[in-house]
């Protein structure tokens, strides 16, 4: 990274064991950061939900809840946006088709399992979402939220 890049972008990295509960810590950490970056409370709530879903998916599906496997959350801080990348170690590879599913509430009523909304929620809540599946390196979701500052009123 060049000096110029270093001035405009900073990175926080979190490594979490694949145990349910740790998604809460990722949510709290991202919320703390987003608050300091100046995001609105609504955006912070959206961010919490999206990160919670992404980390839960990584723990339960990608890493099959094997506590020894790591979930890596990388928070990239830029002046006008926050980029969150959540990666697992890919014990189970996510089917790309699943990332475009549109769940239907009527179907959900019929099922005992109320899951299956995570990826849809992430797509609804974040400004940019990208899934990638590299063989051998796990599943990754990259989410971007833009920092919208209130317009400055000029005299």
């Amino acid at each position: 990274m060049s000096e110029a890049d270093g001035a405009t972008e900073q990175i926080i990295e979190m490594r979490l064991p694949s145990r349910l509960g740790y998604e809460r810590i990722a949510m709290d950490t991202a919320a703390s950061l987003a608050r300091r970056m100046g995001f609105t409370p609504e955006r912070i709530d959206a961010l919490r939900t999206a990160i919670g879903e992404a980390v839960t998916n990584a723990i339960e599906h990608g890493n099959q809840a094997d506590a020894a496997m790591k979930v890596v959350v990388v928070l990239t801080i830029r002046t006008d946006e926050l980029i969150i990348s959540v990666a697992d170690q890919g014990r189970k590879v996510l089917d790309p088709a699943q990332t475009f599913l549109q769940p239907r509430i009527t179907d959900a009523f019929q099922r005992a399992d109320k899951g299956g909304w995570g990826i849809w929620l992430i797509r609804e809540l974040m400004d940019e979402v990208e899934f990638s599946f590299a063989p051998g390196s796990g599943n990754q979701v990259r989410m971007v939220v833009h920092l919208e500052r209130p317009p400055v009123i000029k005299p």
Binding site: I11, M14, D28, T29, S32
Partner: peptide
């Protein structure tokens, strides 16, 4: 759990909250 931050004052607060 591991957290890695750049050496910039302010990020200690994020670590504190985590």
């Amino acid at each position: 759990m591991q957290l890695i931050i750049p050496s910039v004052l302010g990020y200690e607060v994020v670590v504190r909250d985590a």
